[in-house]
Nucleic acid binder design. Structure first.
Lengths: 98, 98
DNA sequence: TGAACATATGAACAGTTGAACATATGATGA
DNA sequence: TCATCATATGTTCAACTGTTCATATGTTCA
């Protein structure tokens, strides 16, 4: 087994995967692979209302998976770091295989 | 964006991550990184009752993340393939970083 | 075969979660 | 400043999820 206390780690790990375990959040993160987008653009491209997207963005931000910046009236969100991309890609690999 | 219809993929992806989004299931999968274990051993090492473990194992098996074989009275479970390990490790990397 | 062991299954319950709606906050520019 | 646009937040509710308890199924070996 691992050298550190793995129990805490595994609870954190489950919490991390929870962020990817909802289709709305995954679709948001996937859309952001292209680059930053504002709330309205995300709502349009996912065909969901603004409130639902905003709620999920706040959850993702609290988990530090996305970052936000303001430009004029709009809030632009982007992926917080490269890990997000690699987690998605590792998952995609699994889903796409026989 | 991707060349295939990414919508179905992303729902499958969320379903995949759901399996890792519960601490009991993550702990089971993590324990199985060591090699196969039977239901009683898993229940002992996670300090949970047999029924809870069995329920989660059936979920994991339905998602093809674990495989089972019988030996005498016991059912031994192991990880279904290497992807499971790489998904966990990619997640661990993220959790362990500043 | 039948007792004992190991695991699976079913039902019920509490806790959690995501979406919708309504409304509030905040920024912009006339 | 005020109307408007863009986003955030609070609340409610239905749906989902994981655990527990009770019981069933299935296997082994005397």
């Amino acid at each position: 087994m691992a050298a550190f206390d793995s129990e805490d780690l595994l609870y954190d790990l489950a919490d991390l995967f929870k962020m990817f375990a909802d289709s709305t959040r995954v679709r948001i993160l996937y859309a952001l692979l292209d680059g930053e987008k504002n709330v309205g653009e995300l709502a349009d491209s996912l065909s969901m209302n603004q409130s639902a997207i905003s709620h999920q963005l706040s959850v993702l931000k609290a988990s530090k998976l996305v970052k936000a910046r303001r430009d004029k009236k709009s809030m632009y969100y982007c992926l917080a770091d490269d890990h997000v991309e690699s987690i998605i890609k590792t998952g995609v690999e699994h889903v796409l295989e026989p």
